[in-house]
């Protein structure tokens, strides 16, 4: 199948710094397939510079506003910012309503900020399956810092921990978020906890509850004990403190050689994932496998052949390095 896009041309314009080309390449990554791989091959050597911060927390905690405030803060220090804002895809229609830009209006006219809204699409968790790839692209585009805002429900909390250097968990005093956070496993993955809406009368108590549960957390000698900060995105308070804590966590990672180790870990898991994807696609596309399976299913239906035995037989046929039909699942 011929490419829908002129990838070479886009990459050339991307390297010149054209936003439109970068935005189009993100679309290519979202759509996956051979084109996406071509893009990732081309930009890989330029990645590894941007610091990635993930933001998670329940819907309505004020993630977008806080991310927007932080972006402005980092901009005042001249950092180039990429923002990835993820909203859920409707399981019914496949469509999505991406509304995070509403709360990021003040950033729109600043060319140093690139905001991209992603729908979660096929992902079961609250982030998009191509979050890593979009981060790479923004990284290669010269962004110093990438802020990733998750949907804030489901598995997103755990997934974001694999993709970000620092995970910021945003909570609000209302409706016992602290307890919810503990239940949802947020306590395990958060590097920084934000009690947003600090103007709320219960904010201080809620922040203290979080502090208490962090104290109970087992942290190895010299390890990172999560920090708590109070902010008000509405009144623009505590944003500088939060930025300071993110910096502090980054220094901690750097001082302990964790940045490098984390990167290695991430790259290893990406190789694994990419390999699995490719194998899966190859198997799905293999006519030989299809033929054998359909030819022997009667035996399985009849109870004469167990599914596992059939697969063991197939195992000998499909091996890595052997060309089994088309390599891409078109």
């Amino acid at each position: 199948m011929s490419s829908r896009y002129d990838i070479e041309g886009l990459l050339a314009r991307f390297l010149e710094g054209q936003t439109a080309a970068a935005a189009r390449l993100i679309t290519v990554l979202e759509n996956g397939g051979e084109d996406a791989e071509k893009v990732l091959d081309a930009i890989f050597s330029r990645t590894g510079n941007a610091y990635r911060v993930g933001f998670t927390g329940p819907p309505g905690a004020g993630k977008s506003s806080l991310v927007s405030r932080l972006a402005r803060r980092f901009r005042s220090e001249d950092a180039k910012i990429g923002i990835i804002a993820i909203d859920p895809t409707s399981p019914f229609s496949g469509g999505a309503l991406l509304g995070d830009r509403i709360r990021m209006q003040s950033l729109f006219e600043d060319p140093g900020v690139f905001v991209r809204s992603l729908a979660s699409r096929g992902s079961l968790g609250g982030i998009s399956n191509c979050t890593d790839e979009v981060c790479d692209l923004m990284d290669a585009f010269g962004k110093d810092m990438i802020l990733i805002e998750t949907v804030g429900v489901g598995q997103s909390e755990l997934e974001i921990a694999e993709k970000a250097h620092t995970v910021v968990v945003i909570l609000v005093p209302e409706s016992g978020d602290g307890i919810q956070a503990m239940k949802a496993g947020l306590m395990e993955i958060g590097d920084i906890f934000v009690m947003n809406k600090s103007d709320h009368s219960d904010a201080e108590v809620a922040a203290m509850e979080i502090e208490d549960s962090i104290k109970l957390k087992q942290v190895p000698e010299g390890g990172w004990r999560p920090l708590v900060v109070m902010t008000s995105a509405k009144e623009d308070r505590g944003i500088g403190d939060l930025a300071g804590l993110i910096r502090k966590h980054r220094e901690y990672l750097e001082d302990n050689d964790l940045m490098r180790r984390k990167r290695k870990k991430i790259l290893l898991s990406r190789v694994r994932n990419a390999l699995m994807d490719r194998m899966e696609r190859r198997l799905r596309g293999s006519e030989e496998v299809k033929r054998i399976v359909s030819g022997r299913m009667e035996e399985v239906y009849a109870g004469r052949l167990s599914p596992y035995r059939l697969v063991r037989e197939l195992d000998g046929i499909v091996t890595i390095g052997r060309s089994a039909g088309p390599t891409h699942g078109e």
């Binding site: 309505g60 506003s65 309503l97 509304g99 509403i102 709360r103 209006q105 009144e235």
Partner: peptide, 10 residues
Amino acid sequence: FGEYREPLFL
């Protein structure tokens, strides 16, 4: 007083 921004939508 600052300026108002609409908090949520839909």
